[in-house]
Amino acid sequence: MFKLIGKKIDSLLMQTGGAAEMIRSVLFWLGRSRFEWKQTVEQSVSIGVNSCGVTALTSLFTGMVLALQAGNTIGNIFGEPIFVGTIVSFSLIRELGPVLTGVVVSGRAGAAVTAHIGTMAVTEQLDALYTLGTNPTRYLVIPRLFAFLITMPVLTVFSNVFGVIGGYLVAAYALGVPGEVYFNDITTFMGVKDFMHGFIKSFIFAFMIATVCCYKGISTRGGAEGVGKATTGAVVTTIVLILVLDYFLTAILTAFGI
């Protein structure tokens, strides 16, 4: 039992060390090699296109269910559904927008990144990069890292917009809250710092997803089975880390008044 726990901790530390080494390599090559613009644009488009449909759908329904729950609960207590817009927008922009986007992006784009790099690893294509004058960090990791850093905040804003629209649809057509009141509730109580709160989170999630998914891909061993395991491992790790990080980031950002 202890041996098993020890092995797990050892493996976790090894992987953390490996990912840290990859980040060191990213920092090393950033200023020393030409930037792969084509790769970065291609990856940004791929991540964005892969994820925007599911992001819109999940956010729309999350906004709808938030409005429904808030409206019904507040209606039961105060007799009428007040502050629905405030509750929906606060929940979405500060928490659910970045978290849901992170989960969707890691499931769609993150998994694709790990599977692609993992397949390259088991077919010696990563070794081929070294022998052809570049390396996996320069050619694969840096463009993907930037692609995630660019697209995640954009997708988060996209998610927030769809969530607020979903909330509006339920508030206006199911709860009878006038649109003007719904949007007034949002603009009165929401500030720039609430937007920044979600925005900072989306950046940190993007960095984490890119790091985990690229590292899992690069460290893939053992043929097709290895690629499958690496991809599953990447998705599970990123989703768990999003939820864990979200708590600590909320605590830290709130402590700094953001």
Partner: peptide, 13 residues
């Protein structure tokens, strides 16, 4: 060095 890999290691993308 040039390296010819066993299965070619061509970039399939």
């Amino acid at each position: 060095f040039g390296y010819l890999f066993q299965d070619g290691a061509l970039f399939d993308s």
